[in-house]
Write a protein that binds this DNA or RNA. Structure first.
Lengths: 248, 248
DNA sequence: GACCAGTGGTTCGTACAGTGAACCACACAA
DNA sequence: TTGTGTGGTTCACTGTACGAACCACTGGTC
């Protein structure tokens, strides 16, 4: 394919919430390209408005033209305008952090969030993607993804036969229930509950999830969350043109 | 600069709200490039997720990765999260269609809107950009833009000395008032009132406007609109890190 | 069925566009 | 002063991008 274009687009992907601005030399180090190449490609990206240089400094950041693109995309395939009200309602119902993620080919990309107002919360600040195998959102998506996608991901994610079997069992359970739960242990312990979201077919493309500090997960809250994500995922799936595939 | 990259980015700009999907041959005609070139560039854009092919057809449309970019941009330079609530409040206050536009180098790009709920309204549906010289938003921006920008635009927009003098007078009046008004005549007649929005400097980067069917513009409504856009533009300017330059 | 116009897509010779080594100016720290 | 780092420029060379020519398929008309 077009190598120069690939290199330019790889520069766009360098910008993240945790690294919103990048200098020329740093970008060259991160991509492995020469400074001259990076300088020229950034120049072209700046001409298009997709990248801009920060006033007063020489660092680069994403430019306003990305908002234009997103606006056209949102009008073509409405998502945020459908998802955000659902997240806001879910936050009111549960009081916990909610998020919607969409499969981007490798992981679940965070599309929209509604952040808990509690001081002790699970935050989505600075989180761009979630792994497929170790989050409720990833598992909910994977359980209802197309066979090609789930086979490919199963192969990559599981490190050995035992982990593969565990993941497959978890996916089976998720398919039977219509939702997934996952307790992530360790410093960043979190309890997530998620439901798959469908669009234009019988396979999932994303997930609606609520994440809770584990010590707060009581049966009453769990029921609220479950009710909210099942209703919310159904609303989103319906509004963007599909049918929820699981019948209880 | 990087010609292949320019060509690829020009393909991105083909997608608009009124033309959300494009086939290979059409894109080749629109850009003047060969089908082979367009096919290859679209392939690379599809790999990156910025473009995708519509399921069941061969047409291309903007892909979900543009939402990722927009999310990073919004986190880096918050705009929509600041602007949309202001637009919603302004709509409640006036009952008329409100919009926020940002200068994109050639015209005012529509960033966000809040649409009147009246059946007879000025709509922003399908509008991507507004001209600088024949809209209240354009004039409000231009009156407070940097001298380099306004000189360049004055030269391009005005067709002869008379038009140039009229535009300059309009800009002077706008600077003295701190807002602009413009009545567009003809089939699409509309009365717009707009205030400039500033960020990170003493020059405008965008405009906050309300547009009304002319027959509905009464003094009481005009006062409401004026109050709303002056307060709203000040809120936006303050929240994204600047000072409103005009003191009344 | 034959023909035509249109679609998306493939191949490969060639030339031109992209690359990066070498260099520059500047800033800052020791 | 020396060294290290930044953003930036130049130009020889070659690798990549280009497009003319071609393909398969679809749908419409006669």
């Amino acid at each position: 394919m077009a190598l120069a274009v690939q290199r330019a687009l790889a520069l766009l992907r360098l910008f993240t919430q945790s690294r919103p601005e990048i200098g020329l030399s740093e970008a060259a180090r991160l991509t492995g390209e020469s400074k001259a190449t990076v300088y020229r490609l950034f120049g072209t990206l700046c001409e298009s408005g997709l990248v801009e240089q920060v006033e007063g400094t020489k660092t680069y950041r994403l430019g306003p033209a990305v908002l234009d693109l997103a606006r056209v995309r949102e009008a073509t395939v409405p998502l945020l305008s459908v998802v955000q009200p659902v997240l806001d309602d879910l936050l009111e119902l549960t009081g916990e952090t909610c998020h919607f993620t969409q499969f981007n080919g490798q992981a679940m990309a965070v599309v929209a969030t509604a952040e808990s107002r509690k001081v002790h919360r699970i935050t989505m600040q600075g989180i761009n993607t979630l792994p497929l195998d170790t989050t409720a959102a990833g598992v909910a998506f994977l359980a209802f993804a197309s066979p090609a996608v789930s086979a490919s991901v199963l192969q990559e994610a599981a490190r050995d036969a035992k982990e593969k079997a565990e993941l497959e069992a978890r996916l089976e359970l998720t398919r039977a229930r219509g939702y997934s739960e996952y307790e992530f242990l360790g410093d960043d312990e979190a309890f997530g509950v998620a439901a798959p979201v469908f669009r234009g077919g019988s396979f999932a493309f994303g997930s609606l999830a609520v994440v809770v500090p584990p010590h707060r997960m009581q049966p009453a809250l769990f029921q609220k969350i479950l009710q909210g994500i099942l209703a919310g995922s159904k609303t989103i799936s319906m509004k963007i043109g599909s049918q929820l595939r699981v019948e209880h």
